[in-house]
Design a protein around this nucleic acid. Structure first.
Lengths: 358, 358
DNA sequence: AAACTTTGTGCAACTGATTATGCAAACTTA
DNA sequence: TAAGTTTGCATAATCAGTTGCACAAAGTTT
């Protein structure tokens, strides 16, 4: 079937091939495949003359090493899976950038999946990543994820799993998170300092650590200042721009509307701003606003929005580092680790009352 | 741990393994690997009883099919490479979303790389994608790319290559592009209709089709209206926010400053807006503004910015479809194809002069 | 000159899955 | 019951690399 001189000449070869393989190089040079393999990876046991011959022909034939074959043999893929809810905003985009930097330095390529804030999608993505033989998975959960079963599978296969930003609460896993409580605390405290006394909060799904903690920070600051915690001043939603509009409408319909809003997301705070503008209310004089994430647009609105920076890039980098550590240690001795980053409150016009309230 | 029958007990096994392979299943069930393989893929030649046994054990052992092995054998990776300058803004993000949708329907996983607007990076990314054995590459060139050599390699390996949005001018390749000339033409014509007579243009590197064509549309509209083309009213830059500020400063320093700016990017038009605000000039009354890309923030600024929507999601989808077509046809008969999408001018406050100029 | 080292390369097994081919047992038909 | 079919599975080659080991030739030491 295959000619003994060149096994690829046969028309009955099942797979049409155009690319040159290591075998082709070996045959054309009259050396063994192992020699070619070693030459290509600059192995010390191969003479310079042979190496140069190999390199030369490799270039001529546009030889392209096959990662799948190498990975198969070496039991490695050099692939790192990244699973995020989306890459729409500034936050996850920057995290991905951070991940890419460190991962590529460590010789890893990354495979990005978006769950679109949907558990079903997330489950499918996990499958995809696993069958792609990724060596680790960095994940930020979707908003609709409330159980851990699909992640269990990753653990069972002893593949390092690192969460970042969003973690299912009370889960014993490795994670890089922001000190969200501190972020909420500082934001609220800042508003109190500006003279606000009736501070509302727009919060997200409370099964997610981030929203729960931001809310906790808000509460802590209120209580510390001796202010009452009023449940009617808290609006729970999915943190979209539209949710922000609805939240603001709801707040303004209260007998005593708030004089400030601390939103757990920049998107909903923009919605709030739009609603306030529509009603010709002044920001920050009538109602001060603070958001969360330091999205790019926060410095483009009028007034510019105060927001909490989440150290996205650093978060991505830390996540990869955590993965690299886990990889080194045996899975039996490794105990989940947590990295906590400090938030950075960026005070802009939307909350800056030079003379305080009233 | 593993029985002596099991060939993986040897301590000399080079690779520590935790995951079960098709061989493990076969041995534990006392059937051949081919049977397991066929059972897993629901081959008709396998009895239901055997299939059920296999599926059961596969679940128990958390069996995970190895895509690398299957891909190696089948000569397919089911991987589609995507190379974009960055995923910071709205534009490329949405394109990626469009790509993902269609690609995953066709059974492809995508591998995203960012060139960071840097040729060197782009070259490295191409290498990465090729060695990952992607079956096709969808690419939007970096701003600094001025030659085609690294793409030649892709062609030589007969891997379908589809450009989208940014293409090296005059290149005979498959591509999905926006009718940028039309976008520039409509934008400028709109400004003229609003009574503007001194329209400036912020343009990008002219070796890129997109900027060249937007500029051409601008020129066409001017000439059609009998307006003079004044080179001092054109500012070439890299289209960042900071460039927009500088461009606006330069324009305002002219003896006769413009009464409108058509910018080939939303980022630089925001810069222009900021500079105008700083100088207490009114938009659109003193100077009208039109941007390009319909970035999310264009509807958050004050005034909201008129911009040209680029049908990003559709662009991504079309790119994948083009790839799928190329895949079907033999590389010899295939001739490069081009898909041109129509832009959509979204008129907002920054260019809306109810009574015209003066 | 014999013994020992070093250098450069080939052999062959191996990675996990797919698939053409063959063959035995069970079933159907004449 | 003998011949022909169908069913269900095993054998073995194959994909493109990697790597432990063997081994010959050349160089070095005694």
């Amino acid at each position: 079937m295959r000619s003994y001189l060149h096994k690829r000449t046969s028309p009955s070869t099942p797979l049409a091939r155009t690319k040159a393989s290591i075998t082709d190089l070996a045959q054309q040079l009259g050396v063994s495949v192992s020699t070619v393999s070693r030459a290509l990876s600059d192995h010390p046991g191969i003479s310079d003359a042979t190496k140069k011959k190999v390199w030369k022909l490799a270039k001529e034939l546009h030889y392209q090493p096959n990662h799948m074959a190498a990975g198969l043999r070496k039991g490695r893929s050099n692939l790192l899976g990244v699973l995020v809810p989306h890459i729409d905003g500034h936050f996850f985009t920057m995290i991905v950038k951070g991940i890419e930097t460190v991962a590529s330095k460590a010789g890893y390529n990354i495979m990005i999946c978006q769950s679109n804030e949907d558990v079903a999608h997330e489950r499918k993505n996990i499958e995809t990543l696993l069958s792609a033989q990724v060596e680790g998975i960095l994940v930020s959960m979707s908003r609709t994820t409330r159980d851990f079963r699909h992640f269990e599978k990753v653990r069972k296969q002893e593949i390092p799993l690192v969460f970042f930003d969003r973690v299912l609460d009370g889960l014993d896993v490795s994670a890089v998170v922001l000190d969200d409580r501190e972020g909420g605390y500082q934001s609220t405290k800042h508003l109190i300092k500006q003279g606000c006394r009736h501070i509302a909060h727009f919060g997200g799904p409370q099964h997610l650590n981030i929203y729960k903690n931001r809310r906790q920070g808000y509460i802590d600051a209120l209580l510390e200042a001796g202010l009452p915690l009023q449940e009617e001043l808290i609006f729970y939603c999915d943190m979209t721009l539209e949710d922000g509009i609805r939240g603001m409408q709801q707040m303004l319909a209260l007998p005593t509307p708030p004089d400030a809003v601390f939103s757990a997301s920049d998107f909903s705070v923009v919605g709030a701003l739009q609603e306030l503008k529509r009603r010709k209310l002044r920001v920050p004089q009538d109602i001060a606003l603070v958001g969360f994430s330091n999205e790019m647009f926060t410095s483009l609105t009028e007034p510019m929005l105060t927001s909490v920076d989440q150290r996205c890039e650093q978060m991505g980098q830390s996540a990869v580092r955590l993965f690299l550590e886990m990889r080194e240690e045996s899975s039996t001795t490794f105990s989940p680790r947590r990295v906590v980053l400090q938030p950075d409150l960026l005070i802009r016009e939307s909350s800056l009352l030079l003379n305080g309230k009233q």
